[in-house]
Design a protein around this nucleic acid. Structure first.
Lengths: 342, 342
DNA sequence: AAACAAATAGAAAACGTTTTCTATCGTTTA
DNA sequence: TAAACGATAGAAAACGTTTTCTATTTGTTT
């Protein structure tokens, strides 16, 4: 009830009739020798008083906060939500606490988030960069704070970065469709302002073989409820697509767009997959829940998140392994949104 | 590059050739009078050195960390993701940083999270309790830390709590269906281990009027990827439902279940809404993205989150208003998953 | 029996801040 | 012209920890 009159280690030492030093030693059970009697007294006092150590004091003294700052473009987007989940799991397992910030797909906010995390003296930072620019990278490097990048690749391949083989993912999508007999395939995209998107498109083109590829690209995203706006982008892309309609299948740059497109097709009386096939990219959990269930190229963001956290914590604990950029391989998940072209 | 040799306010004062005290005063621009010349020198020194204040020292001294701990059952569930988004927005706008923890629908983990947040000396806690028990409540009250509950109601109506009128939401759903001519309505539920679920069901029953209600309840949830498991619960409920099939419409206890059910119906050749109508509860953003788009009772969790954060911060800043439990009203969102029964 | 090592304990310095005292000025005020 | 005041500045005491020194014992080895 009463606020602020917290119990400190001093109170514990007083009650146990000993010094602060000894109390600290017992409470942190460092190996330092202390008589069993004294030990018992201190433990009892701590329990009786309901002592809770003040992590601020501890962190200030030791220089380790055991907190890890995490910046993602959005907490609403299931793709990042799953990555965040992986990060949280790994951090908790290793005794660290993640502090999540979302940059709202906004480079300035991203930088502000990073500044904040530095001020808070996070032990390390997990950063899902939006753009290819180097300002944020320079900032963290100047601050000398351990940082692991994830999701988007960074220019310097020596920086620790857990990302995907986006090119290969795009390639798998179009190759899969050609292997099912499709010869004219559309690509539904957002603007190419991210490396991942460019790579996916390049991969898509590479996987076409002798098939024809058509690019449909939505204009710059409006800020706002991101998930919905991507979904709606998928719907709008369907409209431009239907003007010419010179493809039998579409690959969408992510699952949200794919699901939006499927719904728009269905609303306009075009059946998926019998009239048109759709392949997504990502395999967010909602891909399995769409109607029809979405065939997609899996890039498991949960695993990416936990891998990034693992690399960072390893480096914090001195297990330094000089990872550099690692690209996780994609895999194809067949569901019900593609049909064979005979 | 080099680690750990951080610039402190002491370095700034040394370079500006003044005392720490004065440096602190101008850096925090408190009103304290200081000569313009000196001020300029200090500011310049800070900039030249790239000084970044250590929030740990500051927090330790002032007793305010400006951090708010947040506990939710899951960060993956869009319902909570949206609430978290509202919390983050409000906190940022007011100069606070939220620290998110997920309890994984596990009471022990929930308590552990709370213990952790207390140790970290959060200024306040935002808590979305899972169960009706009082242990966590006692813990925070003993620690004397300002806490605002949200989502699930708490027993003591005097505690600040931002929740919904779950009963009314359930009532609106069934009343809406009866108003469209439905006379036999099923309720697809998860176990009644949360107040919100019980209330929704009670409201559902109350809104039936002279219509008939049928309860289908899924067994205890398995832990795991929560979102998927709820979706699958929706699918399984469809199977038990189809054994008797004595209703023309179903109300689902949440949108995830509703979407799972719609997909399962559709897979089994039963068309929504022409063969069966479905109404959800929550209005998560995916409700607008289902196929067909889900008619549902909106309980905007984004607003709930930001309201809870607002109440907490107000109380931290001494604007205390003695809120107690506030129940936000639901509203009906008509989309395409219900059809009139003539 | 002397010497040394280990066990046990506390005092005090440090971590990076903020803030309360003092202290020194010029300038007013009476 | 003395007293009082506002402006300006710094020393030093906190905040709650951990950890390095010392300082005692006690036990063990020669």
């Amino acid at each position: 009830m009463k606020k602020g009159n917290r119990i400190t280690i001093r109170d514990v030492s007083l009650m146990a009739n000993t010094s602060i030093a000894t109390a600290s030693r017992v409470l942190n059970n460092t190996g330092y020798p202390v008589s069993p009697d004294m030990k018992a007294r201190i433990l009892k006092a701590a329990k009786d008083l309901g002592y809770t150590p003040n992590m601020l004091g501890k962190a200030l003294k030791t220089g380790k906060s055991h907190e890890i700052g995490v910046v993602v473009p959005s907490l609403l987007n299931p793709y990042y939500a799953e990555a965040v989940n992986g990060i949280e799991r790994e951090c908790n397992a290793r005794g660290y606490t993640p502090v999540f910030c979302s940059s709202d797909n906004n480079p300035e906010k991203e930088l502000a988030n990073v500044e904040f995390l530095i001020r808070m003296r996070m032990d390390g930072i997990l950063l899902s960069k939006i753009e290819y620019g180097d300002d944020v990278i320079q900032r963290v490097s100047r601050a000398g704070i351990s940082t692991v990048y994830f999701d988007q690749p960074v220019a310097d391949e020596n920086l620790p970065c857990i990302t995907y083989d986006f090119f290969e993912a795009g390639r798998m999508a179009s190759e899969y469709l050609t292997s099912r007999g499709h010869r004219r395939i559309a690509f539904f995209s957002l603007p190419f302002d991210r490396q991942s998107r460019r790579s996916r498109y390049e991969g898509f083109m590479a996987g076409l073989g002798e098939a024809e590829g058509y690019l449909y690209q939505s204009p710059a995203e409006n800020e706002g409820v991101e998930v919905l706006s991507e979904f709606q982008a998928g719907e709008r892309l369907v409209d431009s697509f239907l003007k010419d309609r010179n493809a039998t299948a579409v690959v969408a740059i992510n699952d949200l767009i794919a699901i939006g497109a499927m719904n728009a097709f269905s609303k306009r009386g075009i059946a998926v997959p019998s009239d048109i096939s759709v392949v997504g990219l990502d395999d967010i959990s909602f891909a399995a829940m769409s109607n029809p269930a979405l065939t997609t190229v899996k890039q498991p963001s949960y695993e990416m998140g936990s891998a990034a956290a693992k690399v960072l914590i390893d480096s914090l604990e001195g297990v330094e392994e000089e990872v550099g950029t690692v690209r996780m391989p994609p895999s194809l998940v067949e569901r019900d949104s593609v049909c064979d072209l005979v």
